[in-house]
Every structure is written in structure tokens, then in C-alpha cells.
């Protein structure tokens, strides 16, 4: 069974005079444990695709099944519940709450599940520890480096044990060295914790960390292939090993 399955997914934005086909008959299946990169130029529909599979947006027509459940026609609050339990988000701009400690940022998804304070704190601490942020629990985002902020965001994405992590240009705001660190981390999560990762990026280097690349153009899937490890990626791996 697929974790993510779309059948004839269409998303049409009605701009009055013209209609924009952001997604055009997209049929994709992603199995649990996969690491998929979604690529394409801006306006290709990759972000719309992410929003739909992230249950942030609903398709105009077609079906989206998450763990076999059709999310079409669900209410706002039902979608929120699914996001909370099934999906972890990692954004380009980190999207941490300002003036709020790393610990409380990680606790945020559990706040809306009404998990008791003690358990919430323990799980958040464990997640931060796993991401090498021990001792930074009470730092605010503006006291952390970009890489550290993104790791807090990843901890937040993982803390509810969501089976799916959606990463939207997670390294877009980071320097090369930090980008490699973050990508290594995501690879590790995928390989060791068997978390399904869908990564949106326009950087080929970053996409190389995945095992499958889906390319979008004008709302359509133009290619969908398993990755052949190429030389540059191998050398990347070699450099990365210094940091892990």
C-alpha cells in the first residue's frame, strides 16, 4: 500500500479571465519509507503538489489518499488533525515561533493534542537531544544559528511521530556546509527511523540525497525515476562524513 497516492489530481486557480492549471492529472504513489525529491522550475506546480499532500490545500478534482484514507471533503479541523498526527513540516524559512524557546517550539504540535505537560516536555527534550541540540532547549530562535533553527524545526516535525515529513526547500536559507549537515540528518532519519520524506527543491545537488526524483513542469509530471548515484553525489557523501 502507498503512504501517499494521488489519482487524477487537478488544481485549477481561477484568476477571473484566465484559469491556471497548477496541477494537471497528477498520478503518483509514494510507498512508506521512500525518500522522494520533487523538482521543477518555479510555477511548475511542485509547491501546489506539496500543499495538497500536506493537507494544507484541497485539490479541485481528483483524489488524494493518505494511508489509504481519502482526504477529499474533510473539514478544516479534520485536516488540522491529520496534519498534526501524520505530517511533519520543515520549511525554508524555519517558521519557528519568535520569542519562544526551542523547547516550546518543539512542544507546539503536542500542545494541540493535549498531551500532559510532563510528557510533552520529555518528548521535546528527547527530540532536541536526538538532533544534537542538548543544552539549547531554552534558547530563542534569534539566539540560534540557521542550522540550529532548522534542526529545531525538524525536531518539531518529528516529535509527534509523524510517518511523513514534508521538507520545502529546507536548505534554501542555509550555507553549503550547513545544508550538507541538514541533508545528512534527513537522510539518516529516512534510513534509520524509516520516515517517509518528500523534499521540494530546485537544487540538483540537494535532490541527489533522495532516492527518487519527480520532476514537474506546467503542472504535469514530466519524469519520475529512481536515482542513479552519480559521481558528484558520491564526493558529496565523502565530504559529509567529516561532519557526521
Amino acid at each position: 500500500m502507498f503512504l501517499i497516492e494521488t489519482k487524477g489530481l487537478n488544481k485549477i486557480y481561477d484568476l477571473g479571465e484566465s484559469k491556471v492549471h497548477a496541477l494537471n492529472e497528477v498520478n503518483i504513489g509514494i510507498a512508506p519509507g521512500e525518500f522522494v525529491a520533487v523538482m521543477g522550475p518555479s510555477g511548475s506546480g511542485k509547491s501546489t503538489f506539496m500543499n495538497v499532500i500536506g493537507c494544507l490545500d484541497e485539490p479541485t478534482s481528483g483524489n488524494y489518499l493518505l494511508e489509504g484514507r481519502d482526504i477529499g471533503g474533510l473539514s478544516r479541523d479534520q485536516l488540522a488533525e491529520i496534519r498534526n498526527a501524520k505530517i511533519g513540516f520543515v520549511f525554508q524559512g524555519f517558521n519557528l515561533l519568535p520569542r519562544t524557546s526551542a523547547l516550546e517550539n518543539v512542544e507546539l504540535p503536542m500542545l494541540y493534542m493535549n498531551i500532559p505537560t510532563r510528557e510533552r516536555e520529555e518528548r521535546a527534550r528527547a527530540a532536541l537531544r536526538m538532533l544534537g541540540l542538548e543544552g539549547r532547549e531554552h534558547h530563542h530562535p534569534n539566539q540560534l544559528s540557521g542550522g540550529q533553527q532548522q534542526r529545531v524545526a525538524i525536531a518539531r516535525a518529528l516529535v509527534n511521530n509523524a510517518p511523513l515529513v514534508l521538507a520545502d526547500e529546507p536548505t534554501g536559507n542555509l550555507d553549503t556546509k550547513t545544508s550538507i549537515e541538514i541533508m545528512e540528518l534527513i537522510v539518516k532519519l529516512n534510513e534509520e527511523a524509516k520516515i517517509t520524506v518528500v523534499l521540494v527543491t530546485h537544487e540538483p545537488d540537494i535532490a541527489q540525497y533522495s532516492k527518487r526524483i519527480i520532476r514537474f513542469k506546467d503542472g504535469e509530471v514530466v519524469s519520475d525515476e529512481a536515482i542513479k548515484k552519480i559521481q558528484s553525489s558520491e564526493s558529496n557523501r565523502a565530504t559529509n562524513d567529516q561532519y557526521t
Binding site: 478544516r76 488540522a80 496534519r83 498526527a85 513540516f89 519557528l96 507546539l108 494541540y112 518539531r156
Partner: peptide
């Protein structure tokens, strides 16, 4: 952010 992580 709150809505994305599951606030109703």
C-alpha cells in the same frame, strides 16, 4: 505555523 502543526 500553529495551523500547520495542527491547531484547529
Amino acid at each position: 505555523i500553529r495551523l500547520a502543526v495542527g491547531a484547529k
